[in-house]
C-alpha cells in the first residue's frame, strides 16, 4: 500500500512526513510512504496526505504550477475515492472558496468557504496554540477523548455549508471547524504532526481508516 504525501513546497512538509513515518513504523502493515509531486506517482496512491501552511492563494497557486498535479489528485480522490487527509491549509483548500487576501477558488470538494476568524478584541489572531476539540464519534477520532487539546495556528477557518461535513470543532470563543469529513475526504485545521501523542493517534486512525 502506498501513502503519498504531496510535495508542493509547503513549509510543514518535513514535519508531516516525519510524523507519518513515526506512526507508520509502528503499524503491523506499514505503508510505503512516498513524498512526491509527480502525477504518475500520485495516480498509484492508496492514500493521500496534503500538508499546507501559509496563505491559501499561495498554496493553491503552488499546486496549480505543477503540471498535472491537481488533475491527478482529483482523479484519485474524487474519481477513485481513495482516502485523503488535508492538514491546515491543506484542509482549507477543500472548500469552494477562500476570502483570504481577496476571493480565491478552492478545490470545491466540500461545500463551504474559508473566512476570517471573528473573535472579540481581546482574542489574539492568529488563533495559535493548544485548544480543546470536541467531535462527533467516528473511527478517525478513535482513542481520542472529548476536549483533547490539539495544536492550531490559523487566522481563517473553514465554515462548512453543511453541518454534517464538520465533524470536530474548537472554541475561540465562537465555534471554529477543527475537522471536516465528506465520504473519503478528511481534513484537520489543527496540526496532528505537532500535537504530540494525540496528533499521532489521529494519523494512526487515518492510516487504519478504510472509507466505505
Amino acid at each position: 500500500m502506498k501513502l503519498v504525501i504531496i510535495n508542493y513546497g509547503s513549509g510543514n512538509l518535513h514535519s508531516v512526513h516525519k510524523a507519518f513515518e513515526a506512526v507508520n513504523n509502528n503499524l503491523e502493515n506499514p505503508y510505503e510512504i512516498i513524498v512526491t509531486n509527480t502525477p504518475s506517482e500520485i495516480l498509484k496512491a492508496d492514500k493521500i496526505a496534503l500538508p499546507g501552511v501559509g496563505a491559501f492563494q499561495d498554496c493553491k497557486n503552488a499546486i496549480h504550477k505543477i503540471d498535472g498535479l491537481f488533475e491527478s489528485l482529483e482523479q484519485v480522490v474524487i474519481g477513485e475515492k481513495k482516502a485523503f487527509m488535508g492538514i491546515c491549509v491543506g484542509m482549507q483548500l477543500l472548500a469552494e472558496k477562500s476570502l483570504e487576501f481577496g476571493e480565491c477558488e478552492g478545490f470545491g470538494w466540500i461545500p463551504g468557504e474559508v473566512i476570517k476568524i471573528e473573535a472579540p478584541a481581546d482574542y489574539k489572531i492568529p488563533h495559535m496554540g493548544w485548544n480543546e476539540v470536541t467531535f462527533r464519534n467516528h473511527e478517525l477520532l478513535n482513542n481520542i477523548s472529548q476536549n483533547t487539546d490539539f495544536y492550531f495556528v490559523h487566522s481563517y477557518y473553514f465554515r462548512t455549508q453543511k453541518n454534517e461535513n464538520c465533524i470536530a470543532t474548537t472554541k475561540y470563543p465562537n465555534p471554529i471547524t477543527a475537522a471536516v469529513l465528506k465520504e473519503n475526504i478528511f481534513g484537520t485545521q489543527f496540526h496532528p504532526e505537532k500535537s504530540h501523542n494525540n496528533g499521532k493517534q489521529i494519523i494512526t486512525n487515518f492510516l487504519e481508516w478504510e472509507p466505505s
Binding site: 513549509g11 501552511v53 501559509g54 499561495d58 491549509v89 492568529p126 487566522s155
Partner: peptide, 8 residues
C-alpha cells in the same frame, strides 16, 4: 510572512 505565512 508573505512567502511562508505569518504563523511561521
Amino acid at each position: 510572512a508573505k512567502k511562508y505565512g505569518s504563523s511561521t
